[in-house]
C-alpha cells in the first residue's frame, strides 16, 4: 500500500511533465495539422532559457520560469512566420510539415549544443528537501512539478472552455475552412496557439530541468513519451493529451512495483499498444454521429 502511494506520487510528477508537453504539442497539431517533432527541443530551449536567467544572470527561479515561457513562445511565433506559414501557403501537407519539423529539431538541438555545450546543467533549486507524510515521502521538487502543472492545466482548460480565444482555437481544430468562412480571424487565433503551445513547452522544459537535469537531449528524449501520451489520450484532443500524459507517468511508475525500473519505457509503450487495440480513438475518444 505504501509502495502504491509512493509510486503514485512519483508517477503524478513525471506524468505532469508528459502532460504539459503533450497538451502544447496536441494544440499545435489540432489547429495547424503540424506534427511538431521539434516540440521536445522547444522544451529543451525553455530549460536553457531558465538556466540563463537563473544561473548565468543569478535571478530568482520564479523569474526564470517567465524566461522559459517567453523565449519558447517567441520561438513558436518566429518559426510560424519563417517556416510553417510560408510552407502551408505553398500547399505543404502533413507529411512535408512533419519532415520539416524533424529537420528543424536537429538544427535546434545542435544550435543548443553549440551555444551551451553538452555538459549537464542544473538550476539553483533545493533538490534535497522532502516531506515525510507518514506513509510516503514527497520531495519539494515533486510538489513544485505537480502543483505548477496542475495550475497550468486548469488554466488551459478554462481558456479552452470559457474564453472566446479558446473556443475559436477548438473551432479551428474542428474545421479551419469553416472557421475562416464564419468570420473568425484565423491568423490571430494561430498566433495565440503558438503563444500557448510554445509557453506550455517552455514550462514543461523548465519543470523537466528542475526535476531531472538539463542537457541538449532533455526534450528530445521526452518526446517519444509525449507522442505516446497524445495517442493514448486521443490525437488532437488537448484534454485527452492531459489524461494520456498522467496515465503514462502513473503506469510507468506503478510498473516498477512488478518489473525492474529499466523496463519503465517498455511498459509505457505496451500500454500504448493495448490502448490502440481496445480504445483506438483514445481514452477520451468520441464516437461521431455521421448520419
Amino acid at each position: 500500500m505504501d509502495e502504491l502511494l509512493q509510486t503514485t506520487i512519483n508517477g503524478l510528477a513525471s506524468g505532469s511533465i508528459y502532460a504539459l508537453g503533450a497538451v502544447g504539442l496536441s494544440l499545435v497539431y489540432a489547429i495547424l495539422k503540424l506534427v511538431n517533432f521539434a516540440h521536445g527541443d522547444f522544451m529543451t530551449l525553455g530549460g536553457y532559457a531558465a538556466f540563463v536567467v537563473n544561473v548565468t544572470w543569478g535571478l530568482p527561479l520564479v523569474v526564470s520560469v517567465l524566461g522559459a515561457l517567453v523565449v519558447v513562445a517567441a520561438l513558436g511565433l518566429l518559426t510560424e512566420a519563417a517556416i510553417w506559414r510560408p510552407m502551408r501557403e505553398r500547399g505543404a501537407g502533413v507529411m512535408q510539415l512533419l519532415l520539416l519539423s524533424l529537420g528543424f529539431s536537429f538544427v535546434l538541438r545542435n544550435l543548443i549544443l553549440f551555444a551551451w555545450g553538452g555538459e549537464t546543467r542544473t538550476l539553483r533549486v533545493d533538490n534535497t528537501s522532502s516531506y515525510d507524510l507518514g506513509i510516503v515521502r514527497i520531495s519539494l521538487l515533486q510538489v513544485i512539478v505537480i502543483v505548477v502543472s496542475a495550475v497550468a492545466m486548469v488554466a488551459v482548460a478554462l481558456l479552452l472552455r470559457r474564453t472566446y480565444v479558446g473556443k475559436s482555437m477548438r473551432a479551428l481544430s474542428d474545421s479551419f475552412a469553416l472557421a475562416e468562412v464564419s468570420g473568425i480571424n484565423t491568423r490571430r487565433v494561430v498566433t495565440y496557439t503558438w503563444i500557448l503551445g510554445g509557453g506550455l513547452a517552455g514550462l514543461a522544459g523548465f519543470l523537466a530541468t528542475i526535476f531531472t537535469v538539463l542537457t541538449p537531449q532533455t526534450g528530445w528524449v521526452l518526446l517519444l513519451g509525449i507522442f505516446a501520451a497524445i495517442i493514448l489520450g486521443g490525437i488532437g484532443d488537448p484534454f485527452g493529451a492531459l489524461v494520456g500524459g498522467l496515465t503514462l507517468g502513473l503506469v510507468q511508475e506503478w510498473s516498477t512495483m512488478v518489473f525492474a525500473p529499466t523496463y519503465k519505457e517498455a511498459v509505457g509503450f505496451a500500454i500504448l499498444i493495448l490502448a490502440l487495440l481496445f480504445r483506438p480513438n483514445g481514452l477520451l475518444g468520441h464516437a461521431t454521429r455521421t448520419g
Binding site: K167, R170, D174, L178, G183, H286
Partner: peptide, 21 residues
C-alpha cells in the same frame, strides 16, 4: 457551405458564438 458546415466538437451554443465573431 454544403459540407463541414458546423463545428462538431463544439457545443451548439459555442457554434453560434463562433458565428458572431
Amino acid at each position: 457551405p454544403q459540407v463541414e458546415n458546423i463545428f462538431p466538437s463544439l457545443t451548439i451554443q459555442e457554434n453560434l458564438e463562433m458565428g458572431a465573431s
